[in-house]
Amino acid sequence: MKIVKIIAWIALIAFVVVQFFQVDYNRSETVPQTDFMLVNNVPAMVEQSLQVSCYDCHSDNTDYPWYNKVQPVASFLEDHIKEGKEELNFNEWGNLSDRRKNSKLRSIINQIENGEMPLNSYTLIHRDAILSEAYKIAVIDYMKKLKDSLE
């Protein structure tokens, strides 16, 4: 039992130490004019879904409740934000050409239809980000309409 105690202590110390690893928070005070919600006329239900389920990783402003600041969650999130924003940044929607918008809309529809976004590893902690069937359909319908209006 002594060895167990030692391991427990080491683990606890490691956990405390790892809290000192700071991450760069993804925060922005302002929402630019090119934001998806400002460029388009988005219904409230769809806007809420995207804000809650996607904006943490696909915009310049992540919501940081306490559990997002605890390590190793914070580092995990930081990596996903970096990668997610490279793929799609809703804040910069207005800068995209019609062709690029079209591709992104198709990808968004595919990802939601296949249940690949939001990432499972993320909804494990952020239970409220899971898209219910009704919200899924509302988002997909809207994205399809938007895509058709561009074609």
Partner: peptide
């Protein structure tokens, strides 16, 4: 109770090590 606690903490250590090594892999 002690065993349970240890298991929990060990899972944590595993998670931490994993995240760290993931970062290494990325560099």
């Amino acid at each position: 109770k002690k065993v349970k606690q240890t298991v929990r903490i060990m899972t944590l250590v595993a998670t931490i090590t994993l995240t760290m090594s993931c970062k290494d892999a990325e560099t």
